[in-house]
């Protein structure tokens, strides 16, 4: 895997727009373009003062630009004071960004079909994977779940690419697409697969913990490899504070591992739920 070494940069906000008061998309210029692995994240702050103190971990949504003029985008949901303050920042204001961070999805296995599963704002780390697979003409399908149609990502945010995969929208209230939970949609679709097709399948998932737990349990039962992107409260984001640990299996023992550095993407078999 190639990605740029981690750095701490100042970004200048170009756009910071809310969509349906649920998701925000913030774009900033940074000194140099960024190469990142889908699933990697950044620590982002920009509000003045010491309160809240800590930056917020956000998945890298898109990057671009040219030499000497990079661009970076994040999608976020307002969940607390930090993200509320972030949503109030204007074009021209600055962000402090540490990036890229963590281990992203492993998309380098030959001959695999990928199913990408995003629950809620989890699409923000799944879309970059879809964009990459689309560019490579690697077969994939995407499952996006939300409570209602208003909680689904806006259609125009869905990555295109040369070979866009099939996208299944799912809502718990049935206002759009499949009526039910995204996990059920994935399992139903799985039943349609031939054993041969199922043997080529790898699942990548990001979303609420309950969703990831269920995806892990169901894929493990069927012997399908799955990679799950976990979230946690973080202080630093680059491995020094040891605040964001989760419990992982290591052989028949368990150990505390950092979401920020050892993850955020883990093999589903490793995670102690």
């Amino acid at each position: 895997m190639t990605y740029n070494p981690t750095r701490f940069v100042t970004g200048r906000i170009v756009r910071n727009e809310g969509r349906g008061e649920i998701f925000y998309r913030i774009e900033a210029t940074i000194p140099e373009p960024l190469r990142f692995v889908p699933g990697q994240f950044a620590m982002v702050s920009g509000w003045p003062g010491n309160d809240p103190l800590l930056p917020r971990p956000l998945a890298v949504f898109r990057s671009g630009g040219t030499r000497g003029k990079g661009k970076i985008e994040f999608v976020y949901k307002v969940v607390g004071r930090g993200t509320a303050l972030l949503s109030g920042l204007h074009p021209g204001e600055t962000l402090s960004i540490t990036l890229p961070l963590g281990r992203g999805f492993d998309l380098e296995q030959a001959g695999r079909t990928y199913w990408l599963v995003g629950g809620g704002v989890g699409f923000s780390s799944v879309f970059p994977a879809a964009a990459l697979l689309g560019r490579r003409r690697n077969g994939f399908e995407m499952f996006l779940g939300a409570r209602t149609r208003d909680h689904l990502p806006p259609k125009e945010w869905t990555p295109g690419g040369k070979a866009p995969g099939r996208t299944h929208f799912c809502t718990e209230d049935g206002t759009a697409g499949y009526h039910g939970r995204v996990t059920d949609a994935v399992l139903e679709r799985m039943r349609e697969l031939s054993p041969e097709a199922a043997s080529r399948l790898t699942i990548l998932a990001c979303g609420p913990k309950e969703m990831l737990k269920e995806i892990s349990t169901e894929t493990l039962k069927r012997g399908i490899p799955a990679q799950v992107a976990l979230e946690n409260h973080m202080a630093c984001g680059f491995g020094v504070c040891w605040g964001c640990v989760v419990t992982l299996w290591e052989g028949d023992r368990t150990a505390y591992r950092r979401v920020c550095r050892d993850g955020p993407v883990f093999d589903a078999r490793e995670v102690v739920w």
């Binding site: 409260h233 504070c241 040891w242 605040g243 640990v245 150990a255």
Partner: peptide, 23 residues
């Protein structure tokens, strides 16, 4: 030292609480 179980940090007003447990 393995340290304390998860649920190790929480942000508070202009600060943070940690209970890493010296991992």
């Amino acid at each position: 030292t393995p340290g304390n179980p998860p649920g190790r940090i929480v942000e508070t007003a202009a600060g943070m609480l940690n209970a890493i447990g010296l991992q």
